[in-house]
């Protein structure tokens, strides 16, 4: 019953949205190059999927590799920085302020440094995901309560034990929040970096070039693929999160 009440409105909106979309396109006989009807997009998806799958995998690989390197680097850097809370407090404001830099604008430079192929896109995704992960993980590692630290001291716990048994598990919820957000960010970063220039077989270039040629249905089906891959990535990370922190979800807060 709860399920129906929680999800029925959303499902209803989806169905209504699709019907409305079809109806509007049909009723006002909107040109397909402006807004193709859903069934046309699905049809185009069926026709072009070999190209889309190749382009999708190409771009997805960039996103996943960049995410893994950026987030991995962010976590590692946070772990190192957390060893000296004084140092951490100095760098934290700068890392937070890095959110104000439109990193994506560096894409053309990345091409100069790492080539027009996947390397440059991965570099951008690494840059985009590194700082949010670093900031969240570091905050998580440092937000252990003073009483908790006193308790560990009274048990003569070593630094290593304190880190492995208290700081690390304590930081997991914040770390995973960042990892999830970065999964989305990674897909966006990969596609948009390709808007600045990339090989033809990439999703971003495909979207940009088909759109500029008014091949709208192809563009939309490519966007759909990008969305699907983005969601897939997000939920894959969310699944890992559930497996890594069963205690967090039994509570039923999420």
């Amino acid at each position: 019953m709860g399920y129906v009440r929680d999800y029925a409105p959303a499902a209803l909106v989806l169905v209504m949205g699709l019907v409305l979309w079809e109806a509007v396109v049909f009723a006002f006989s909107i040109e397909f190059y402006l807004l193709p009807a859903p069934h046309v997009i699905v049809q185009s998806l069926r026709e072009t999927y070999p190209v889309l799958v190749e382009a999708g995998l190409y771009t997805f690989t960039e996103a996943v590799l960049g995410w893994a390197l950026g987030c991995g680097g962010g976590i590692l850097a946070a772990m190192i920085a957390s060893r000296s809370p004084a140092f951490a407090r100095v760098v934290l404001p700068y890392a937070v302020a890095s959110a104000s830099v439109p990193i994506i604008a560096l894409a053309p430079l990345a091409i100069v440094w790492f080539g027009v192929e996947q390397g440059s896109k991965i570099a951008i995704v690494v840059l985009m995901t590194f700082f949010p992960t670093f900031v969240s993980t570091l905050r998580g590692l440092l937000s252990v309560t003073p009483q908790s630290l006193e308790l560990m001291r009274s048990y003569a716990a070593t630094e290593r034990q304190l880190f492995l048994k208290i700081r690390l598990p304590h930081s997991l919820p914040m770390m995973f929040t960042a990892l999830r957000a970065c999964a989305t960010l990674a897909m966006i970063g990969a596609v948009v970096s390709e808007f600045f220039g990339g090989p033809v077989k990439s999703l971003g270039v495909y979207i940009k070039s088909t759109a500029s040629l008014f091949q709208t249905r192809q563009a939309w089906s490519a966007i759909l693929v990008a969305c699907a891959l983005g969601l897939l990535f997000y939920f894959a990370v969310a699944l890992i999160e559930r497996l890594a922190m069963p205690w967090h979800f039994e509570r039923g807060e999420h």
Partner: peptide, 13 residues
């Protein structure tokens, strides 16, 4: 969770 920026070219269309 969706790469919304990807539709930027369509908005321009």
């Amino acid at each position: 969770t969706v790469p919304i920026l990807a539709i930027a070219p369509m908005v321009v269309v």
